[in-house]
């Protein structure tokens, strides 16, 4: 039990993520989380505005159930399988947090961005909104996110997924190294 309460090592986590994909494939489905965002849009009637959303969203209902499960899993893991500690990130990363005004004495998520009191700062809200819009827009533009491209697509040795993952890292590196100093 003590083992499960600790953060899980990377090799166990990676193996279990691959198993998640395998189970979905064996169920005749595929592993991809961002397509649920499209399903939300389609279910809310976005098909009236763009033919992109005119797919039969009910055939993707199974994935919404996976989302329901993921939300429940997040609840159980955070409340019963963890003490909400900040991950044991490297000392170098801890030291660099000061330059973007984020405390190195923190919780699972930085309270400067993800606590309710952080929402009193309009800048925090803008960061969350812009981040979210880029995630949703980029994921559909690229045809998938980390689960669909970096795990499912690369597992199938698909060149488009390799291009997308290279793009993910170019974007992430530009953000953290070039834009973070300007934003934070």
């Amino acid at each position: 039990m003590e083992f499960f309460l600790q953060p899980w090592p990377w090799y166990l986590s990676g193996f279990l993520i691959a198993c998640t994909m395998l189970i979905l494939l064996l169920m005749g489905k595929k592993f991809g989380m961002s397509s649920n965002l499209k399903t939300f849009c389609a279910a809310c009637g976005a098909g009236k505005v763009s033919p992109f959303f005119q797919s039969d969203w009910k055939s993707d209902k199974w994935n919404l159930l996976v989302v329901v499960g993921a939300i429940l899993g997040g609840f159980v893991a955070s409340h019963y399988l963890s003490n909400g500690e900040m991950p044991a990130i490297s000392e170098a990363t801890k030291a660099s947090l000061a330059s973007i005004n984020i405390s190195a004495e923190n919780q699972y998520m930085p309270r400067e961005l993800f606590s309710i009191s952080a929402l009193s700062d309009i800048k925090t809200i803008l960061i969350l909104i812009v981040g979210g819009v880029l995630i949703g827009f980029g994921a559909r533009y690229a045809g998938g996110c980390t689960s669909g491209h970096a795990i499912s697509g690369l597992s199938n040795l698909q060149l488009p997924s390799l291009i997308a993952v290279i793009g993910f890292f170019i974007g992430g590196l530009v953000m953290v190294h070039l834009l973070f100093p300007l934003i934070f």
Binding site: G138, G143, T146, A164, F169, G171, F180
Partner: peptide, 11 residues
């Protein structure tokens, strides 16, 4: 698309 997603992922 990947670059746009990556920007959001990091932000």
């Amino acid at each position: 698309g990947g670059i746009i997603f990556g920007l959001g992922w990091a932000l």
